[in-house]
Simulated assay, not measured.
Amino acid sequence: MATYRIGVLRGDGIGPEIVEATVAIIAAAAEHAGTTAFDFVSLPMGWEAIEKHGEPIPDVTKEALLKCHGWIMGPHDSSSYPAEHREKRNPSGELRHHFDLYANIRPSKTMAGIKSVVGEADLVIFRENTEGFYPDRNMYAGLGEYMINPDIAIVNGVFTRKAAERIAHAAFRMAMQRRRKVTIVHKANVIRLGYGLFLDTCREVGKQYPEVTVEDYHIDAMAAHLVRRARDFDVIVTTNMFGDILSDLAGELVGSLGLAPSINTNDQQAMAQAAHGSAPDIAGRNIANPVGELLSTVMLLDWLAERHEDRELYQVARLAENAMTVTMQEGICTADLGGTASTTEFTEAIIQRIRQSPRNGEKGV
Rank of each mutant, 00 (worst) to 15 (best):
I167Y: 05
I125L: 14
G331F: 12
A224D: 03
F198W: 11
G277T: 02
A83E: 15
T183I: 04
A30W: 02
L9I: 06
M73Q: 10
I50F: 03
A274H: 04
A250Q: 02
R96T: 04
A24R: 14
H218N: 15
P280T: 05
D281T: 05
Q329K: 12
A188V: 04
E63Q: 12
A27D: 13
G361W: 14
T297V: 12
D59T: 07
L199N: 03
G144F: 03
F126W: 06
E55L: 09
N129I: 05
L246R: 07
A171L: 11
E20W: 00
A320E: 00
D151I: 13
I154H: 14
G113W: 11
K363W: 11
V185S: 04
A64Q: 13
A274E: 03
A272K: 01
V235Q: 06
I263M: 07
R359N: 12
V185R: 02
D244P: 06
E252Q: 14
E293R: 01
H32N: 10
V326C: 03
G251I: 04
F198H: 01
A188K: 05
R231W: 08
R178F: 09
P290E: 02
W303F: 12
P290H: 05
A221M: 14
L253S: 03
V214T: 15
G196Q: 07
Y217W: 15
M111I: 15
A163L: 06
G119F: 08
N90D: 13
E312D: 15
A317P: 04
I191M: 15
H276T: 03
Y195M: 14
H97D: 13
V8Q: 04
E330A: 10
P210S: 07
F198N: 01
S92N: 12
R285T: 14
A83G: 06
N266K: 11
I14E: 09
R307N: 02
A29D: 04
F38W: 05
S116L: 11
K52Y: 01
R355L: 13
L65A: 00
S116E: 09
I105T: 06
I154A: 11
P58I: 09
T201Y: 02
F233C: 08
E204I: 03
Y134V: 10
I152R: 08
D100M: 05
V291G: 01
V205K: 00
I18N: 03
A171S: 12
V124R: 00
I219G: 08
V117I: 08
E31N: 10
I25A: 04
A29T: 06
N289C: 12
Q208L: 15
Q208M: 14
D136P: 10
I354R: 00
A153R: 13
G132I: 03
Q356E: 14
T183K: 04
T343N: 05
R231A: 15
A317W: 01
E55F: 09
P56Q: 10
L65C: 01
A224G: 09
D122V: 07
H98C: 05
M222S: 01
G157S: 12
L304N: 02
G13W: 00
G13K: 00
M45T: 08
I154V: 15
I351P: 00
C333I: 04
A30C: 11
G142E: 10
V291S: 10
M176A: 15
T327W: 07
Y134E: 11
V254D: 02
N156K: 15
T340H: 11
A112S: 13
T201D: 02
Q177C: 14
D151M: 13
P91L: 08
M328T: 15
